[in-house]
Design a protein around this nucleic acid. Sequence first.
RNA 1: GGCCCCAUCGUCUAGCGGUCUAGGACGUCGCCCUUUCACGGCGAAAACACGGGUUCGAUUCCCGUUGGGGUCACCA
Length: 439
Amino acid sequence: MSVVTRFAPSPTGRLHVGNIRTALHNYLFAKKHGGTFILRIDDTDRERSTAEFDQAIRDDLDWMGLRPDMIVRQSERFDLYEREFQRLKEAGRVYACYETPEELDLRRKVLLGRGLPPVYERQPADAPVPEGRAPHWRFRLDHEAPIVFTDLIRGEQRFDPKLLSDPVVRREDGSWLYLLPSVIDDVDLGVTHVVRGEDHVSNSAAQTQMFEALGAKPPQFAHEALLVAAEGKLSKRLGSYGAEHLRAEGVEPMALLSLLARIGTSQPVEPVANLAELAGGFDFSTFGRAPAHFDPNEVALVNARLLHRLDLAAVADRLPQGATEEDWLLLRPNLERLSDFTAWFAVLHGDVDPPELGHEERLLVKDAAAIAEKLDWAAEPWRALTDELKRTSGRKGRELFHPLRLALTGRESGPEMAGLVARMGRDRAVRRLEAAAKR
RNA sequence: GGCCCCAUCGUCUAGCGGUCUAGGACGUCGCCCUUUCACGGCGAAAACACGGGUUCGAUUCCCGUUGGGGUCACCA
């Protein structure tokens, strides 16, 4: 049987690192086994779901190369839910309830106050039905059958159904809550593996019975430990590391994905060039069970390391017009993000603002300009320039190089000067040295 | 509050009773390369939360404490 996974976001916001990680794991597991990766848009909540977020989610997945083999929307499948719902109703697995949210809330507080688990208490069969009120519907958990399933990450999971509330599956107005439609879809689409955060384990327990009530075998579950922010402790804050933010920061998708695929596992976080390679090493047994700390700085680190080994071909279409292989190899080791390339490209082929230098440095740079003027640029201009200047000025080491670097590139640090100087050409070099001397 | 999960270097983790003078990766620090900074190469420092057991012997098993995470919605 071939593997089928699904990623089921609701279009009520953009993707963030937690979401993306779940999507990625579903994708990688499916691809590793030559299976199918489904994107299921969970838009049963018509109040909060928007077409814009629906689109944004697909764009973000596309940006990362996480292409779904199939896309379905729950809002287009209500007929199916209706049919299955009727079946469950006839089988007595779904029943009508008439409590108001306020009543339920109060009851919960009372139980909690008495130190009891706030589990929903079923009404007796002969309880009076309030007049003129539409019911909402709950799924009847089988209290006699202990719920047991083997989680791919957490091992054997056991739940006493008596400690679980019968989940509400449908509201008074007929709208759906996510629990049941999700199961119906998983059955219908042949989902074999449900990979999601550990905040869903108790949902999985209840859903296990729903699969069975529908006459289906529950899928394999894998509940991964959540990500928490490195600073502070609220996992909610992770929301700020959204896809749009990461994209705006100039993060390479594969850098993000390399980190997200490995964080919280026993495998080293290292830049990996493509999804296929990531999929090859994917293994639930390497997943830890403790929440992992997500540190945005780590994304930047992986991003830089990834860039340093990328070939020109991988980035050529995102580089400025006229950038050559030589430019790329020269500048690449110094990039933290690809967009840095543009500024360095200007150092080679455009203009830079002259820096402010001290009196001594201005004199040095003025001498440098005079020397540079006469050099054979086809030989080793940087070597020749610095050798000569060392002799005339008596300076060496940082004393000598720092002012030259500043004058020639406008920056404190950067790639190898020899390469930069040779590449920028004599005219540009002389012009900059003179400009810095005058400033 | 009930229930569930977790607890090893700063971080992610390996370890499944003796093989641990506790291994790897990221970060940090140092050295090398570079007549500068960075890149790169090499190396070093750095951890078994605490208290009880069990055992000839506990990082490893059990209990408790402390600490973290999750969940108990007519959200997903």
